[in-house]
Computed example of a mutant assay.
Amino acid sequence: MHVRTEPAGPRKGTAARPPLVRELLLVLGLFLVYKFGRRLAIGHTTAAFHNADRVWGLERAVHLPGEGGVQSLLLHSGAVVHLANTYYATVHFPATVLFLVWLYVRRPAHYLWSRRVLAAVTSVALVLPFAFPLAPPRMLESTGLQDTARLYGPSVYGPPDADHLSNQFAAMPSLHFGWALMVAIGLIAATRSRWRWLWLLHPLITLTVIVGTANHYWLDSIAATALFLLAFTFIRAPDRAGRPRAGRPRCGRRRALAPSPG
């Protein structure tokens, strides 16, 4: 008996792995846009400090916990605060790159979803500094917070007026926290391990670091979370098998599938 064999390929309903070169260019472009795009919004120093006063006042008005409480925990140990500065400086980009690489190799459908969400949120985040430039809390004297990176190292920023590699007045939203949140949610969605919820430690640690080092306000992380929730509404995640999540079946189709009487 002759058995017909089909060539190996992606299962029906799953996403094929996209071309590698194209994805490398797309992801590289995403990172370059993130890295240099915010530079276009430089030059709004007065507005950035004015908005910082407004954000700080709003946080106190709605009784958010003070960022100083988190920083005081880090400052109990020079080694801990140095580790927090190192985490801020070195984990953000590599963790996101490794996340995308793993998904590309092991979960192509989840890779496409994650890449689309990251691209959408990052694009919106690049526009916000034009409309709402914001100085980080480490620059605002009224906060009483220290610039831990400058005092304890390592620091990724130079003096704002001489820093030609980044826009330090683009604190809102915090893509440090937003990307960490995407890494955790993406891995939880794509895996089945009972330990997968531990990935939430990454955004939790990132939140502690960015607030404790006075690089971001609480509201920066809240804004990033809101952007990702909005993106999740329009860009649906596949199921863990890599199939698009089906919408609610139509009434006519339910009737067609029902067994006929008699």
Score class of each variant (00 low, 15 high):
94 P>R: 10
95 A>W: 05
95 A>C: 04
96 T>E: 09
96 T>W: 03
96 T>Q: 11
97 V>C: 12
97 V>W: 10
98 L>Q: 02
98 L>H: 02
98 L>Y: 01
99 F>C: 01
99 F>V: 01
99 F>W: 00
100 L>G: 04
102 W>F: 08
102 W>C: 06
103 L>W: 00
105 V>H: 11
105 V>Y: 12
105 V>I: 10
106 R>E: 04
108 P>H: 01
108 P>N: 01
108 P>I: 02
108 P>C: 00
109 A>K: 05
109 A>Y: 01
111 Y>R: 00
111 Y>V: 00
111 Y>F: 15
111 Y>A: 00
111 Y>M: 01
112 L>W: 04
112 L>P: 09
113 W>N: 02
114 S>H: 01
116 R>T: 10
117 V>L: 02
118 L>G: 00
118 L>P: 00
120 A>I: 13
120 A>F: 15
122 T>I: 05
122 T>D: 03
122 T>Y: 01
123 S>G: 15
123 S>W: 12
124 V>W: 09
124 V>G: 04
124 V>C: 03
125 A>L: 05
126 L>S: 13
126 L>Q: 15
127 V>Y: 04
128 L>S: 05
128 L>N: 06
128 L>D: 09
130 F>K: 04
131 A>R: 04
131 A>D: 05
132 F>A: 11
132 F>Y: 15
133 P>M: 03
133 P>N: 03
135 A>K: 12
135 A>Q: 11
136 P>C: 13
137 P>Q: 12
137 P>H: 12
139 M>G: 05
140 L>K: 14
140 L>W: 10
142 S>P: 01
143 T>G: 11
143 T>M: 11
144 G>S: 09
144 G>Y: 07
144 G>K: 07
144 G>Q: 08
145 L>Y: 04
145 L>W: 07
145 L>H: 03
146 Q>W: 09
146 Q>A: 15
147 D>V: 05
148 T>D: 07
149 A>H: 08
149 A>W: 04
150 R>F: 09
150 R>K: 12
150 R>W: 12
150 R>H: 14
151 L>Q: 12
151 L>E: 13
151 L>S: 12
152 Y>N: 04
153 G>N: 06
155 S>P: 00
156 V>P: 06
156 V>F: 06
157 Y>D: 10
157 Y>S: 09
157 Y>K: 13
158 G>Q: 09
159 P>K: 08
161 D>L: 10
162 A>N: 10
162 A>E: 11
163 D>L: 10
164 H>I: 08
165 L>D: 14
165 L>Y: 15
166 S>L: 08
167 N>Q: 04
168 Q>N: 11
169 F>N: 14
169 F>Q: 07
169 F>K: 02
169 F>L: 12
170 A>Y: 06
171 A>F: 08
171 A>R: 10
171 A>L: 06
171 A>G: 15
172 M>Q: 10
172 M>E: 06
173 P>W: 01
173 P>T: 03
173 P>R: 00
173 P>M: 04
173 P>K: 02
174 S>W: 08
